[in-house]
Simulated assay, not measured.
Amino acid sequence: MLELPETLRVELKDPLGEIYTDPDALLAAVDEHAETTATADASPPPRLLTVGDVVTATLADAGRQPDIAVIDGRTEREPVDPAVEATLADLAGRRLLVTNPPATISESLLTTLREAAIGTEYPVTISVDGEEDLAALPAILALPDGASVVYGQPGEGMVHVPVRPAVRTTARELLADFDGDTDAAISLFD
Rank of each mutant, 00 (worst) to 15 (best):
D67L: 02
D67R: 07
I68N: 07
I68P: 09
A69K: 09
V70T: 00
I71E: 02
I71M: 02
D72R: 05
D72M: 08
G73N: 08
R74F: 11
T75K: 08
T75I: 06
T75C: 12
E76Y: 03
E78C: 03
P79M: 06
V80M: 05
D81S: 08
A83N: 12
A83Y: 06
V84W: 04
V84E: 08
E85A: 15
E85K: 14
A86C: 07
L88H: 12
L88K: 09
L88N: 09
D90R: 15
D90K: 15
L91Y: 04
A92T: 12
A92G: 10
G93T: 04
R94T: 14
L97N: 11
V98I: 08
T99P: 00
P101V: 00
A103T: 15
I105M: 05
I105T: 10
I105C: 06
S106K: 01
E107Q: 12
E107A: 13
S108N: 09
L113T: 06
L113K: 05
A116S: 15
A116T: 09
A117F: 01
Y122R: 00
P123Q: 14
P123N: 14
P123I: 05
P123M: 11
V124D: 09
V124S: 09
T125M: 04
T125I: 06
S127T: 13
V128Q: 11
V128I: 05
D129M: 07
D129P: 03
E131N: 14
E132K: 02
L134Y: 10
L134Q: 12
L134G: 10
L134V: 06
A135W: 00
A135V: 00
A135I: 00
A136L: 02
L137A: 11
P138Q: 10
A142P: 04
P144I: 02
G146C: 07
G146Y: 06
G146V: 07
